[in-house]
Design a protein around this nucleic acid. Sequence first.
DNA 1: TATTGTTATACTCTATAACTATA
DNA 2: TATAGTTATAGAGTATAACAATA
Lengths: 155, 155
Amino acid sequence: MIPAPDELSPVDGLAQLSFLVHGTLERLASEHGMSITQARLLGVLRDRTPTMKEVGRLLGLDKSSTTGLVDRAEARGLVARVPSETDRRAVRVHLTDDGRSLVSQVAGRFEREISTVLERLRPRDRDTLSRLVSRVLVAHAADHGIDLFSGINVD
Amino acid sequence: MIPAPDELSPVDGLAQLSFLVHGTLERLASEHGMSITQARLLGVLRDRTPTMKEVGRLLGLDKSSTTGLVDRAEARGLVARVPSETDRRAVRVHLTDDGRSLVSQVAGRFEREISTVLERLRPRDRDTLSRLVSRVLVAHAADHGIDLFSGINVD
DNA sequence: TATTGTTATACTCTATAACTATA
DNA sequence: TATAGTTATAGAGTATAACAATA
């Protein structure tokens, strides 16, 4: 009989961790009647008032997909379109009060749930993990010309 | 002016890492004309020949969603339904040769791409990261009665 | 002419409810 | 009666192509 491994391969570990985190966000969003995409939309609007085109770039969506996404969020009263003051073709998307309240709730629960998972490590190990994860992300972002803290490509 | 942080918060780091890994899988699957769901279906069939009900449980889908998923994969010649030998209501789903070849290709590319990202760390740090990730996953799995190596709930 | 955004259309993914065949 | 699976239907999410308004 083959002994069970007591550790996953590095890639398998990252894959499973990624599904765990992604699944957590999906569950929390769904508890508030949202998909991950809707949650991400509200998330990027927390500190921006982008045009439709910029929303699409931030979320990696075609402009037609963005139209539908914002339509549905607007119908629920979570976001609003306002005409751009500088370009009469463009609109800016911003959170409503309801949208801001909802995204804060979901973000808070996400923070708490992931923290709970991390608390299974001793504080020292937690710091080490966090530092190594940051280092991987920083290196990868540098390789691909991405601003890690805004998510915006700075090519 | 606020100085830019040189490290993300632990939760932000995990979230971004998770999107990086998930996005990589999504891109690789899409390069082969598949969604993540299709890739996961082929993945779970690599070492199993489950019934439709079991496929749904493994992927977290309703039985009707499973029917459609398997329909589309079968239409592409990636999987096949075979009647169960013990229960005439049930069918077993298995990979075709084409399906096995496709999933091996995608899995190989995923392994290589994620390994490339990890190679930005020194071998020593890589081992540490991998060990800590495994430890988090093992603890979380134990908390939730999940067999980490099969993904199957053993409640 | 180029850009911003919407509309028309089509396909995947997902769920609920109703149904068929078998246990 | 209960279970395995499919079908009917509906909605979200995605893309491509064609279009209108504006730059």
